[in-house]
Design a protein around this nucleic acid. Structure first.
Ligand code: FES
Ligand code: FES
Lengths: 144, 144
DNA sequence: TTTATTTAGGATAAATTTGTCCGAAATAAG
DNA sequence: CTTATTTCGGACAAATTTATCCTAAATAAA
C-alpha cells in the first residue's frame, strides 16, 4: 500500500509530534530507535519532510527535529503520504493505465475509485494530533 | 497499490476470459499485445496463474491460454490478486509492523482496517465475468 | 577559537521487482 | 517421424527501492 519510506516517515512524524507536544526536540538517532527504522534511510526521509515544511530540523548540539505545536493539529496523514509517495496513490489507475479517466475507464475503474477515494478521505481527515495522542496515552505502538 | 505483475495478471485474465466466452484459446503473444505488457514477463505471470488453477494452458500449435467457462463466473478479482501478490495486502499492517494485531495496534490501525476490509470485500465481490463483460461490450479498456 | 554534536547531501551498495533470453518440453499437423 | 508452434522454466539483466557510508556544513558550549 504505502512504500517503506512512507511507513517510516509516518511513524517518525508521529513520534516527533509526541515529543513536540512536550516542547522537546528529538534526534535522528532516537527517532530511528523508537520507530525501528534504518538510521541513514530515515535521515533521507526526514530531510524530505523538512523540505516539504512538515517538520523543522536544527543542526548542532541540542539539534534535532520538531514540529511547530500549532501545526500538529492541522497536519493530516494525507500531507505526509503526499510528501513522500506523491499522488499516484490518490489518482492513479488501479490497473496501471497512464492515467485514470472515467471517460475511458479500465475494467476495475468503477469499483476501484470508491476504495481510492475512501483512502484519500480517511487520510485527509486524520490529523497528526490524534495519531500522536493515541501513541502518547499508550493506546497505539510504533514497533512490536 | 497492486504490483506491476498483478496489474498485468488482472488485465491478462480479463482478456483471456473474454476470448474463452467465445470458446477461443489465446496465445501469450496476443495477450501481451492486447494488454500492453512485456511478453516474457507476462509469460511468468500466466504460468503462476496456471499453477494456481485460475487459467488453463496448452502447449503446441493451436495452444494458448483459456479459462473454463463455468469458472468465469466464480473466479473473483480477489483470487487473481491473491495468487500473484499474496495476502499481505489483505491482512498486513498499514505501517509495516510485522503483523496487524488489534490488541497492539499501530497508530493508523483503526483508520486503516476499514479501508483494507473495503478493498477485500470489493475484490471478493467482483467476478471475472462482470469485468470481462464490461470489456466485451466496449465499456472498458485494457490500454490507452 | 576550538571542539563536540547533529543534520545535509552526495556517492555507493544491497535487495527487490521488473523485464529479457534462450533452450527444453509438449503437441498438433504434414 | 519430422517439423513447426507454443508454453515452461531456469539463468540472467535492468530498473527501482531500500539501505549504508562518508564528508561537509551548521551550531552550541567550553
Ligand atoms: S481507469 Fe483504471 S482506475 Fe480509473
Ligand atoms: S497494526 Fe497497523 S494496521 Fe493493524
Amino acid at each position: 500500500m504505502f512504500s517503506k519510506a512512507c511507513e517510516y516517515g509516518i511513524k517518525a512524524t508521529i513520534y516527533i509530534a509526541v515529543k513536540s507536544m512536550r516542547q522537546e526536540r528529538v534526534s535522528l538517532k532516537e527517532i530511528a530507535e523508537e520507530v525501528d527504522s534504518p538510521v541513514a534511510f530515515t535521515a533521507k526521509i526526514l530531510q524530505s519532510l523538512a523540505k516539504n515544511g512538515i517538520i523543522d530540523s536544527h543542526k548542532g548540539p541540542t539539534g534535532g527535529f520538531q514540529i511547530e505545536e500549532t501545526k500538529i493539529d492541522t497536519i493530516k496523514l494525507h500531507d505526509i503520504v503526499h510528501a513522500i509517495d506523491g499522488d499516484k496513490i490518490f489518482s492513479g489507475c488501479g490497473l496501471g493505465l497512464e492515467q485514470c479517466d472515467a471517460r475511458q475507464p479500465c475494467p476495475v475503474h468503477d469499483k476501484f475509485v470508491g476504495i481510492r477515494d475512501n483512502l484519500k478521505i480517511m487520510l485527509q481527515n486524520t490529523s497528526l494530533y490524534e495519531l500522536a495522542t493515541g501513541l502518547e496515552i499508550g493506546l497505539t505502538h510504533l514497533k512490536r
